[in-house]
């Protein structure tokens, strides 16, 4: 029997699921291998009977945690899809301020009662990655994910192998593509710390890597900071660069709760 797969999303743009939908003709092959029972990007049917849950988005409020825990309980395998699920996404930058400061900034203070914690939709918003709430079996990183890598992970799972997410930096794939190094044209690239697997599309298109896939397992961060300083960036600049997708690595708890 084909494994039943369900897609879910939390705080995110759903761009990663869109990337899956964009597999297009390959999607036909994929559908020969799995039964998709929930995927609101492409279908309206929904079932809670599934083996594999593929979850996009960051976890924001207690109600999201509850929902994720239910998904976890229903699934044999849970896969975090994309940077929001993997790291908390760009929205995690909000964790630099307390929930109250954020609410005040975003919603103003006209009717404080409407956005108080007692309203469960506004309860203690804090961005978390999935693995800070439940056990995550596999992660497909990236903003958005690389659809070829998605297919590779699926193939690995279906053939009983470890998903082949690389543990070397983007520089490796960038060099293999023979790109002009971003540093040589005065751009400040996170490639030396960032996990490869994307195929270095950003430097290939002339843009610096922002480490949307997170860091390799053993990044040499000190050396990267030295390098960026050498190229004229201040510590503040560097920290700003490092908080874009990878605030998780430098976050100091500031719950304000």
């Amino acid at each position: 029997m084909k494994p039943r797969v369900a897609f879910f999303d939390f705080a995110s743009c759903e761009g990663c699921q869109l990337s899956v939908a964009n597999l297009e003709e390959s999607l036909v092959d994929v559908l020969k291998l799995i039964d998709i029972v929930a995927f609101r990007e492409v279908m309206k049917e929904h079932s809670d009977q599934y083996d594999i849950a593929i979850v996009e988005g960051s976890i924001t409020r207690p109600m999201d945690e509850e929902r994720l825990k239910k998904i976890r309980a229903n699934a044999n395998i849970l896969i975090a899809l994309g940077a929001c699920a993997h790291l908390g996404g760009v929205q995690r930058m909000a964790n630099q301020w307390t929930p109250e400061e954020n609410k005040k900034e975003v919603y103003g203070i006209a009717n404080p009662a409407d956005i108080a914690d007692s309203n469960r939709f506004f309860e203690k918003p804090r961005q978390k990655a999935l693995d800070e709430v439940v056990k995550v079996d596999y992660t497909i990183p990236g903003c958005p994910i690389n659809k070829e890598e998605f297919a590779k992970v699926l193939i690995a799972l279906l053939t009983g192998r470890k998903p082949p997410i690389p543990d070397y930096p983007v520089c490796v794939e960038c060099k293999k593509k023979e790109n002009v190094c971003m540093f040589t044209i005065g751009k400040f690239c996170m490639g030396p710390l960032a996990r490869a697997g994307c195929g270095a599309p950003c430097p290939t298109a002339g843009n610096e890597c922002e480490a949307c896939r997170g860091y390799v397992d053993h990044p040499h961060e000190k050396a990267q900071t030295d390098v960026l300083e050498k190229y004229g960036l201040t510590v503040d600049d560097i920290m700003r660069r490092k908080t874009m997708f990878t605030y998780r690595y430098v976050e100091k708890p500031k719950d304000g709760a």
């Binding site: 520089c171 490796v172 060099k175 040499h220 000190k222």
Partner: peptide
């Protein structure tokens, strides 16, 4: 090597 990013370049 303290300055090395171990990027493989």
């Amino acid at each position: 090597s303290d300055k090395c990013l171990a990027c493989g370049t």
